[in-house]
């Protein structure tokens, strides 16, 4: 019955309308491509490290190779005048040296000068480090400080994003991010400026714990 049909259409929600229109319009099913070739990478860990360092330096960050945590702190004290400045960390091994963030209102982080954070792993081809809320609950930590330092274990560098997503394929997280270099913009006449809204600098401490 025509009027009945009109009535049904009228009470269709946007969800139903969109899903029906998509079903009606979508073309015949095509297959997903085979992606095997992207996982065939034979770069050695040493090559991954070399590639990672060269990309990181190109995107405006800095790499230090260190053996232990006191070395991290010494380097940071050398690089920054931290007197009277707030330094916060989420690295357990640094607990004795730096405040750990335990707050619940993240607006309190607005005055952090330097943040020191652990990372899960890094990607050689683009210089990115992967972090998620399994490492620390507060998502804002890597974004709000003036300067950021990451700790990365030397053996945790994968060649490309394909291997990176293999590592996190089945992980459950609320939030995660690849972070590559300091915050930047080139919106004014394409002049590159570091420190748009987030950290003005990024240091990555590559830890070689095998010694």
């Amino acid at each position: 019955m025509a009027s009945g049909k009109a009535k049904t259409e009228k009470i269709m929600t946007s969800r139903e309308k969109i899903l029906a229109a998509v079903k009606e319009s979508q073309p015949e099913l095509t297959p997903l491509p085979n992606l095997d070739l992207f996982y065939q990478n034979i770069d050695t860990p040493e090559q991954n490290l070399t590639n990672f360092i060269s990309i990181v330096e190109r995107i405006g960050a800095k790499v230090y190779q260190v053996q232990d945590y006191p070395q991290v702190m010494n380097q940071l004290k050398e690089d920054f005048d931290l007197a009277g400045k707030r330094v916060v960390s989420a690295v357990r091994e640094l607990d004795a040296m730096v405040d750990e963030y335990k707050g619940s209102n993240n607006h309190e982080l607005a005055d952090v000068e330097l943040m020191i954070l652990p990372t899960h792993f890094a990607v050689a081809e683009n210089g990115a480090c992967w972090v998620n809320d399994e490492l620390y609950q507060e998502r804002l930590l890597p974004f709000i400080p003036q300067h950021l330092a990451f700790i990365l274990k030397k053996e945790n560098i994968v060649p490309t994003l394909h291997q990176a997503y293999e590592l996190i394929a089945d992980k459950s997280y609320g939030f995660g991010a690849f972070i590559a270099g300091p915050s930047k913009t080139a919106d004014i006449e394409q002049s590159l400026v570091l420190g748009a809204h987030c950290p003005r600098s990024l240091r990555i401490f590559v830890m070689n714990l095998s010694f």
């Binding site: 990309i55 995107i59 990607v123 081809e125 683009n126 210089g127 990115a128 998620n132 809320d133 609950q137 998502r139 974004f143 994003l161 459950s172 997280y173 609320g174 939030f175 995660g176 991010a177 690849f178 972070i179 590559a180 270099g181 300091p182 915050s183 930047k184 080139a186 987030c198």
Partner: peptide, 18 residues
């Protein structure tokens, strides 16, 4: 887009924060 290997931030939002 810009010739960068990746953007500075590639943020994955799955669940709302507490």
């Amino acid at each position: 887009a810009t010739g960068q290997p990746i953007t500075t931030y590639s943020s994955h939002f799955a669940k709302p924060a507490t």
